[in-house]
């Protein structure tokens, strides 16, 4: 099973990359789960035609009880992808990190993996590894590998460096390891050089190079990924290549 966590600076395109990667895996015939770990709960919206799934924390807050089945807190989106959002507290209140932990415990109790039997699980995680809750997706049993999304912008690279250091700090025999970088281009001057320089200094591979493209915005406005909207376009093809590469690596490891 491929289990990936996607981290990166806020607003850098983590959810876009995650959803497109999920769609690419699904279009290659894989059973995919995408779990958004962000209080904004918008990770999977473009797999669901623009209609968001009820986040787990919203379900528990509104009903004051835990769900008893996966169906109550998930929706099936493009390509049969099972979409789940942890959600979180009202901004300024509560603890979003605890929300992730609670959701993960619940999914374990509901035997998500045993019942759905996924080939691929993707965790789309808010921003940096800021507390124990946001490190939960890289614990034993969850993600095996981390992909860091960054552009050539200074603050995005700064965040990527922090994430890489944080994951390395946890790097013992059971935690996830950083697989590489998704370069999500933002039309920054000398962008490729800057990202490559960072990748080299951190000893990381650039796993994918996603061009800046109006297609992404066009299809997101329609509640779709580019994989769904125009699978032949260059952006979609880059995600397909990344998915194929990760599948090949997983098969080689098996």
């Amino acid at each position: 099973m491929i289990k990936l966590a996607i981290y990166g600076k806020g607003g850098i395109g983590k959810s876009t990359c995650t959803a497109n990667l999920a769609a690419a895996f699904a279009s290659l015939g894989k059973r995919v789960i995408q779990i958004g770990c962000d209080p904004k709960a918008d990770s999977t919206i473009n797999l669901l035609g623009g209609t968001p799934v009820t986040p787990v924390m919203d379900y528990m807050r509104d009903r004051d009880e835990e769900p008893t089945s996966i169906e109550e807190i998930s929706q099936v989106g493009y390509g049969g992808i099972l979409c789940i959002e942890t959600g979180g507290p009202t901004p300024g209140l509560g603890c979003a990190g605890r929300g992730i932990i609670t959701t993960f415990s619940l999914l374990e109790e509901l035997e998500l993996f045993e019942k759905f039997k996924p080939d691929v699980v993707l965790y789309d995680v808010l921003g940096d590894v800021v507390c124990g809750g946001f490190a939960a997706p890289i614990r034993e049993g969850y993600a095996d590998k981390v992909l860091i999304v960054t552009s050539g912008e200074k603050m995005a690279l700064y965040a990527a460096n922090n994430i890489n250091k944080a994951v390395k700090n946890f790097e013992d025999r059971s935690y996830a390891k950083v697989r590489g970088i998704i370069m999500n281009r933002r039309a920054v001057e000398n962008e490729e050089e800057k990202v490559r320089a960072f990748a080299e200094s951190a000893g990381l591979d650039i796993a994918a190079d996603i061009p800046r493209s109006a297609d992404i915005i066009k299809y997101e406005d329609m509640g779709k990924t580019v994989i769904e909207g125009d699978p032949e376009c260059e952006t979609a093809q880059r995600f397909m290549e990344l998915a194929k590469k990760l599948i090949a690596e997983d098969e080689a490891n098996d």
């Binding site: 990190g97 507390c131 946890f170 059971s174």
Partner: peptide, 9 residues
Amino acid sequence: ALLGTDMER
């Protein structure tokens, strides 16, 4: 519980 420490680790 609020810190989310991985006590197994």
